[in-house]
Amino acid sequence: MKPFRHINVPGVAEAVDYLNKFPGSSRLIAGGTDLLGVLKDDILPAYPELLINIKAIPGLDYLREDENGLSIGALVKLAFLARSPLVREKYKVLADAARSVGTPQLRNMATVGGNLGQETRCWYYRYPHGIGGRIQCQRKGSGPCLAVGGDNRYHVIMGGKGCFAACPSDLATALAALEGSIKTEGAGGGRIISIGEFFHPLGNALKAGEMIVELQVPPLPAGSRQHWLKYTLREPVDFAVVSVAVLTVLEAGICREARIALGAVAPGPLRALQAEQFLKGKEPIPEVLQEAAVLAVQGAKPLSKNGYKVEIARVLVLRALEASFAGHK
């Protein structure tokens, strides 16, 4: 790795301070599981001068539940989230998504804040500088998106614009089904960004000098059930080809609420709103679920080599809905 300066900060205020003192040339480091890969491969046109270590900030690794729902401090480790009895019981998709990330050692290191802040895995974007030079692209600020005419088998099938890289974060998909949001702190104070607004085709909504301090999940609809599915080539280590998180409410045999979030198919997690609307007020019989799954991928615009993801997404939605409704027994 090329050299950088490194500083440990004692609190959020100091972290934000440093970010603002070194705009564009500093980076936060939490678990480092994504950032150090990015730095080793030297993919960024601007290599950071300063890493701001937030790992040792005390009290930012809390898990709290009250009448406003669940709050998760940015430094909570994925291993902790995956094992938490509270999360496993009530916020199942979140625990399952956390458990599906990488490997046990990675989950021992990785934080929830870093999971949302991580960079895309597009292989053009991540192409190592050391092997024949850095590849420029739209996301890096110059040139077109190379996935369009290149090998795009893992890229988006919906919502791409300028850049067609997929959102790699599994927690984002789960949070979308739970209608969660992200609390930040910045120089001008904090704000709350809903998960649906956080990712955009070229990156995320964080402003320079802003950091994630908390993930928030509002109270769940009474009697709701959830289900998480992630399709990968191998079970451990791999990123999602497609992931799905669903939440359902069934009353007297009728679907009252359905939330379907798709991951790795778009620049951010995507809610299948049309399919959700279709399900409401209906009995979740097989034909209805099949129709909902078709609606969930309607409008997909696959690239040259990723049409297969549309079919995987449809099947995962169907299976996740079946499992979630079967849970209402």
Binding site: T33, D41, T103, Q105
Partner: peptide
């Protein structure tokens, strides 16, 4: 780069990847 686990050591008793630890 965090994929193979060969570099695993225990940090305060917990398995971590020493190739992704500063």
């Amino acid at each position: 780069k965090g994929e193979c686990g060969a570099c695993t050591v225990l940090l305060e008793g917990t398995p971590v990847l020493s190739c992704l630890t500063l």
